[in-house]
Design a protein around this nucleic acid. Structure first.
Length: 911
DNA sequence: AGACATGA
DNA sequence: TCATGTCT
């Protein structure tokens, strides 16, 4: 693939150039001048269409003075002010950049030149080529094997300067340009240079003596009197000029490649651009944008999707479905030690769907599609057997994007896929934990700047993969495998050898088959029990509804916060009636959440509402929806667990979310009680890490006091209470314990005194003193918190014990809320993430022991610090031993880990 | 603090 | 999309 290209434009240079290029003024009907906007837009649109950049950004000066002004007071002193009718256009110009999808880069204390210089050097590290779009010869100093000067000529033409072209023009190398400019000076920027030396003279001298230093070392050689005199008298000025003309290349810039991305096809037909050209009455440009939009929509009608074509004709995709080609393919496959697999399947159901074909790639832009259905003309049984030996070869790395899915599909057709794995979806998540999507489409766009054909184009509206013509399917499947392999080549080097390698190779990759099995096992729920509960709650719900309507004096939609607001705070004004002043607010008025309703619960209406809320939540979210998700195939619930769903490294669960099944209240608990084993002599087993996050906190902070409490196996909240209230553990009251518990949680979540006060029901002031006392008793925890925050500030990410990272959100130091949030993240993420890593390690250990010992016990679900299993009574003891051992020795964190196990009818009692 | 689901 | 509520 050719290198991806970044184009950088100097905003002010472009604006001035466009402004002066116009002889006649151009204005809107209301008199707003628009020459600069028109000229700049025209220029950029031409550039985008002609060059189709992968990345395009505009750089501009910051307002502040720079190091050059400090060094030389008169720097740029003779610049005249910007003409008023250009200045007035600037806001529109910036809007125009935005409409084109170009980021406007600006950094405090940097001139555009320095920003550009540092940017091109930075992206060179990422393997990009840079094109500096400017007529300013100063930029020639930056030209190298990956950096070009793209200088506009008259009439829309450009000259491209590479190293050779620079030498051709001045006879000096790019790295000598600085010294040449130092001799010449620059009247526009008030750079003094050396009197009596111009462009020609400067070039000649540098050619002869190599550098400014070289010239002064050989001053006696110089025959030209005028030059010699000038050089002698302007020595200081020459070296000052050298400093002034040197473009900074090492400024740290906060941009990622994603910030610089350009989508040429979208840029020229965006809604924003059309709106802007219309608003500014730029008719020629409006017409041009409309043309692009029409072309795009007619292309879509013809079913021609917009794909960023990157030499896609050069790809080598082969359909392998003849006996001879199959054998030839298998022989080549067996020689690979890394390859990418992707399956095309009859559907997405993990308990019933199967592969119809498999695509494989081991080299970028080359891939093979091997049908595993009737499209395959070779001996299928033999083919599968051969594939099996490769798919389970422990010496071969199998690359995939969400390879858990392929594992499951292959499993459904009797094929075993085994490690080592390299999952590019998880690799993406490890490298960018705060990105929302890690789908193949998103990753290709993000890392390869390649827009895939949407799957829906292939499938049509209702069809399945099975109905797709083999040629199309083959091409699509090959593209997926090829791109996945390219992602592997792009992402894995960033992980290998870095501190992320452990988390990727030793934790996440081995976890894949564990989760794959867990999902396929599913969990049984008692439909009957849920149906009974549903009826009971239906009755209660109706009663409450009636009661609520009566109290309100009218019928309304109780589930609409807006309507409820009107009843509570306007019609009945309950808060006034009860004399309650402050009511929590949301963006759209008074809140009606639990905390508010509880405040008002002296009145019967809010009281009824509270119960109604509980009942309807339970009924709609769990009792009525769980049965709908039970697989007809297995009669069980097969939720998904995602390794890429959270910023901290926890797993997440969906369809249904098994991680928020009720447990706290008796009514909710009945829902979880419906989860049971369908087999006669089998039991549910639940294993809970006790206080895992506080143990992790003790470990991370190395607080002896807290560590000792765990070594002593004390009740941690009681111990904390004893410690901060200065009493013996036996004398701790209920009240004191629950306040200590709130503080312990508060610390883990990084919550402030206000939240703590709300949580414990004490005043903010009292909460403050609690926290102070806490820190006095656990001084290392205060230290840990400070350390976490400063680490996060410095690195802009947080890190767990195992090296997992989470980038911090961009912090705007004026944004108080954002800052507080970032601090909470700095404290919470390492704790939550380390706990998540511990249980992941335990899961892998447990599954391995289950496999090795050939027990039939099954892991069914994970709820952050809890694992749920199902096993025959006869295996109970063996299973408990395995669980306990694995969880308690998951990793040595310098604090003992404790596990509580509950089973059978008591499986919920571990809590 | 971190998730996901529901209903409007 | 927001407000709400469930879990850890």
């Amino acid at each position: 693939m050719t290198k991806r290209r970044l184009f950088v434009v100097d905003a002010m240079a472009l604006a001035f150039r466009s402004y002066h290029a116009f002889q006649r003024p151009l204005t809107t009907s209301s008199g707003l001048p628009t020459q600069a906007v028109y000229g700049s837009l025209m220029f950029l649109m031409n550039l985008i269409e002609k060059e189709r950049p992968d990345y395009l950004v505009i750089a501009t000066d910051s307002r502040e003075k720079t190091f050059r002004h400090e060094r030389f007071e008169a720097y740029k002193a003779n610049r005249s002010d910007m003409p008023e009718d250009l200045a007035i256009q600037l806001p529109h110009l910036f809007k125009a950049f935005e409409a084109l999808g170009c980021k406007l880069l600006k950094e405090p204390g940097l001139e555009a030149d320095d920003l550009i210089g540092s940017l091109v050097r930075q992206v060179k590290q990422d393997g990009l080529e840079s094109y500096i779009v400017s007529g300013d010869k100063d930029f020639m100093q930056l030209v190298d094997d990956a950096t070009y000067l793209y200088a506009p000529k008259k009439g829309g033409e450009f000259v491209l300067y590479n190293e050779a072209a620079v030498i051709d023009k001045y006879g000096v190398r790019p790295d000598q340009i600085i010294d040449m400019l130092a001799l010449m000076g620059d009247s526009a920027d008030n750079v003094p240079g050396v009197a009596g030396i111009g462009e020609k003279g400067a070039a000649k001298l540098i050619q002869k003596y190599d550098s400014l230093e070289g010239i002064y070392e050989n001053l006696d050689d110089i025959t030209n009197k005028r030059q010699k005199n000038g050089l002698e008298s302007s020595r200081d000025s020459a070296f000052l000029s050298q400093e002034l003309v040197t473009i900074k290349i090492d400024a740290e810039l906060p941009y990622t490649l994603d910030d610089l991305c350009c989508l040429p096809d979208n840029a020229l037909r965006s809604d924003a651009l059309l709106e802007l050209t219309q608003e500014l009455e730029l008719r020629t440009l409006t017409k041009r944008v409309q043309d692009r939009r029409e072309a795009a929509s007619s292309a879509q009608e013809k079913d021609l999707p917009f794909v960023q074509d990157q030499d896609r004709d050069s790809v080598d995709y082969q359909l392998i479905n003849e006996p001879e080609t199959v054998q030839e393919f298998l022989n080549k496959l067996k020689q690979q030690d890394v390859f990418c697999v992707d399956t095309e399947t009859t559907g997405l159901d993990i308990s019933s769907d199967t592969p119809i074909g498999i695509s494989i790639s081991w080299q970028a832009e080359q891939a093979f599609y091997i049908p595993l259905n009737q499209d395959q003309k070779a001996d299928l049984a033999h083919l599968k057997q051969e594939l099996q030996s490769v798919l389970s070869n422990p010496k071969v790395t199998k690359v995939g994007h969400n390879i858990k899915f392929d594992w499951q599909m292959l499993h459904n057709t009797g094929l075993t896929l085994s490690g080592p794995f390299a999952d590019t979806m998880i690799a993406s998540h490890i490298l960018h934990a705060t990105e929302r999507s890690h789908s193949l489409d998103a990753c290709c766009a993000r890392y390869l700047n390649y827009k895939k054909i949407p799957t829906t184009d292939l499938l049509g509206k209702t069809g399945t993969m099975v109905d797709v013509p083999i040629a199309d399917l083959s091409r699509y499947a090959c593209e997926d495998a090829d791109l996945c392999l390219q992602l592997y080549q792009h992402l894995l080097p960033k992980i290998k050898g870095s501190s992320l390698e452990t988390i990727f190779s030793d934790i996440e990759m081995p976890l894949i088959p564990v989760i794959a099995k867990m999902e396929q096992a599913g969990v049984y729920v008692d439909r009957q029990s849920l149906a009974e509960q549903s009826e009971e709650l239906e009755t209660r719900s109706e009663e409450l509804k009636k009661q609520i309507y009566e109290l309100a004096g009218e019928e309304f939609n109780i589930q609409s916060p807006k309507q409820l607001q009107a009843i509570l705070f306007e019609k009945l004004a309950i808060h006034e009636e009860l004399g309650i002043k402050r009511i929590k607010k949301t963006k759209s008025g008074y809140s009606t959440d639990v905390s508010v309703l509880e405040k008002l619960s002296a009145h019967p209406l809010p009281k009824a509402l509270l119960e109604f809320r509980v009942v309807s939540k339970l009924k709609s979210t769990y009792i009525d929806s769980l049965p709908k998700m039970i697989s007809a195939q297995s009669d069980r619930l097969h939720a998904s667990f995602h390794q890429t769903g959270t910023a901290t490294g926890r797993l997440s669960s969906s369809e249904p979310n098994l991680q928020n099944i009720p447990i706290r209240t008796p009514l909710g608990r009945r829902v979880r009680e419906a989860f049971r084993s369908p087999e006669e002599d089998w039991v549910m087993v639940s294993a809970d890490y006790s206080q895992i996050e506080l143990r992790v906190l003790a470990s991370l902070s190395k607080d002896e006091n807290l560590k000792q409490a765990f070594v002593d196996d004390a009740d941690i909240h009681t111990a904390t209470a004893a410690s901060i209230f200065g009493v013996d553990p036996e004398d701790v009251s209920h009240e004191q314990r629950s306040q200590a518990k709130a503080i312990n949680f508060g610390i883990i979540y990084g919550m402030g005194p206000q939240r703590l006060a709300r949580e414990t029901g004490v005043s903010t002031k009292e909460a403050k003193t609690f926290i102070e006392k806490y820190f006095a008793r656990y001084p290392h925890i205060k230290g840990y918190i400070d350390k976490s925050i400063s680490f996060a500030k410095e690195h802009e990410y947080t890190e767990t014990l195992t090296g997992r990272r989470r980038p911090l959100p961009e912090i705007n130091s004026s944004d108080r809320l954002g800052l507080a949030n970032a601090q909470n993240i700095a404290i919470n993420s390492p704790v939550q993430g380390t706990a998540a890593d511990l249980i992941k390690i335990a899961m892998v250990k447990i599954q391995k022991k289950l496999d090795d010992s050939q027990l039939s016990a099954k892991m069914l679900m994970q709820v952050h610090d809890e694992l749920v299993f199902e096993c025959p009574r006869s295996e109970l003891e063996a299973l408990q031993t395995i669980i306990k051992k694995s969880m308690e020795t998951a990793m040595d964190i310098g604090v003992p880990l404790k596990v509580a196990i509950g089973y059978g009818t008591n499986w919920l009692e571990a809590h």
